[in-house]
Design a protein around this nucleic acid. Structure first.
Lengths: 343, 343
DNA sequence: ATTAGCACTCACCAATAGAGAGTGCTAACA
DNA sequence: TGTTAGCACTCTCTATTGGTGAGTGCTAAT
């Protein structure tokens, strides 16, 4: 429904605004070599584009600024896939120098590097612990009353839980319990352990463990694994350098959203693949002038994490999407090779 | 060298400025019931105090503002010990409801609560892992090539290390190694483990472990414990609400200092007890308009952590010092009871 | 030693004016 | 019919100005 000329004008307005952050006027557009029309003609086209809702004025006689709808259209239809710079590829590859079996290190480093490359804020939702499966459990007695339970998941995440031992629970008992747990619970998702405890493990305990009721209670009480993925941030303050955040109130709200783990809810329910949320699409009023581009990564066909870049709505969509998709593709294939080759 | 009258004027100026954040004039001082002098007299005294460097003007005809020297004098000589409010005591006590053997939880909660109580930013340097002593070590094999080493310290901190196993290192070997390590390294500070490995453990390995050289290498390579304490923050954005931080540049610098772990260096070398660093005493230009009040806590006579409050130089010194000293005293005695009773 | 009085200074605020960038509309043009 | 030149108009931005109020330093009187 938009003419060729309107499309190219829209594109140039958005590209221009993304790089300069100031409203784009008809005169500056008419000077571009790709636009061989006078400023008056462009004014007419711009009036139409405004009526259609793709661009806006900041005041009656200002240049035009992309609207949210404009950005949306730009992202959906005008975005030419960008070829990554050699330099960028190098930096992304350096992330994989970390040893893959320490997944959290890789993730932390990726947040840092991506934030440096983009000058926006990077957020990574790490391996979703609660979806992971139990690979191995061990209980180390420390003294008569306490012990540490060590839980290792299939993605190599290690979790520690302090536990209170029931009265007179000696290391022989512990060994029996651990053996049963390892035998019966291997491969069970961590969130399901609760259900499996009574159902699968209970009656075996009755036979082998003296005070099985207390042992079960202890495990149910202390073995609870928090269901939150770990979050890693890179460049938390980067977004403060953007000219649109020149207002203390805005900054405060924004930093609060970033600090107080509210990002978790925004990111955790994203579907697989690349997602772009623009301005008010983010459902948090502090992010009304921000966009979030997120991408998921997986082991095999199983999504295990999300990496997101938070910037102003006036964000370099093409470049960021290019970086994220390159990175998550390579991360996914590296992780898949590493973790699935063994089984 | 200061007269009684000068002292009380200085005190009132600082108290006033701390609560209002605006320069204090001679007229408003002369109205205070504790100052039975006219504004002209006070002006004379203020001129003297200014000459001595305790107070300053923001411009030629403004009221007075405390200088850094003024704050320093105030903290050192004028601070009356404040009795804590019943309400405050309640809140502080609620921190101890956490189970003491999960020290990190206690610490995290204390950061949060202290920041809420003061409206400043709270920073806690957690148990100094590297000074802690080894209490127990265990190695869990995951597959032929990898294992997890679990290290438990005397303060209940648990650390995981992924390790790469040498070729053909089976669980019998691992058990031998673990036994030797537990026997020989218990009570050794984590930082010293490196030295002890060759000296104490090496020749025992020669007797019992087949490929002892590789085993030693593995341990030396992978058992390295990071020497940094964990840091916990509370109310990172609180300080942004202070009226003195109305400048984007200042805010950016400040948030960067807070984010990028630079606080670690500032806090880690504080001596035991309560410390007050005012403005430029902090040796980081982003903190020139901030003060940091820090207090250490211990187990027995052994310092294990620091808790600090970061606010503007115009900070409620008396109250914060009261809160911190109450809190660290109680924390120290609770921890000492808990951890030393057992031995 | 203290204070009343006064001239003076400076931040803050509101009002004003001019410049610059950009728009919408109209009329002329190819 | 699409394009363009021209023009009046609008709005932001940046001084500039003048008035007000809070506060100071100094001097002379108490």
């Amino acid at each position: 429904m938009l003419s060729e000329r309107q499309l190219s004008i829209l594109q140039i307005i958005i590209d221009d605004f993304i790089s300069t952050a100031s409203p784009v006027g008809s005169r500056s557009l008419s000077k571009k070599p790709s636009i061989p029309y006078s400023s008056a003609t462009i004014r007419n086209e711009m009036a139409d584009l405004e009526e259609l809702g793709f661009i806006e004025k900041t005041h009656t006689s200002s240049g035009r600024v992309p609207s949210e709808k404009g950005y949306r259209y730009y992202v959906d239809h005008l975005l030419a896939p960008v070829k990554l710079q050699q330099e960028d590829v190098q930096k992304l590859k350096s992330i994989f120098e970390e040893r893959l079996f320490e997944l959290e290190k890789v993730i932390e480093k990726s947040a840092k590097i991506l934030s440096e490359m983009t000058n926006y804020t990077a957020i990574v939702l790490g391996p979703a612990v609660h979806e992971n499966q139990l690979r191995k459990i061990q209980i180390l007695p420390l003294d008569k009353k306490t012990a540490v339970a060590v839980i290792v998941t299939d993605t190599g995440h290690v979790e520690n839980k302090m536990i209170h031992l029931p009265e007179g629970f000696d290391s022989a008992e512990i060994e029996k319990v651990v053996n049963v747990l390892n035998e019966r619970l291997q491969g069970v998702p961590l969130t399901e352990i609760h259900h499996f405890l009574r159902r699968e493990v209970g009656n075996i305990f009755i036979e082998h463990v003296t005070n099985y009721e207390q042992a079960l209670e202890m495990l149910e009480r202390d073995l609870h694994v928090s269901s939150k993925e770990k979050m890693f941030f890179g460049g938390k303050t980067n977004i403060l350098s953007q000219p649109e955040f020149n207002d203390i109130e805005k900054i405060k709200m924004l930093m609060q959203v970033i600090e107080e783990e509210k990002m978790y809810e925004l990111l955790s329910k994203n579907p697989a693949g690349i997602n772009v949320k623009i301005g008010t699409e983010n459902a948090n009023s502090a992010l009304n002038e921000c966009s979030i581009i997120s991408a998921t990564f997986s082991i095999g066909s199983h999504n295990i994490g999300t990496i997101a870049i938070l910037g102003p709505t006036r964000m370099e969509y093409a470049r960021v999407i290019g970086l994220l998709s390159y990175f998550t593709q390579h991360l996914t294939s590296a992780l898949t090779d590493y973790y699935l080759e063994k089984d």
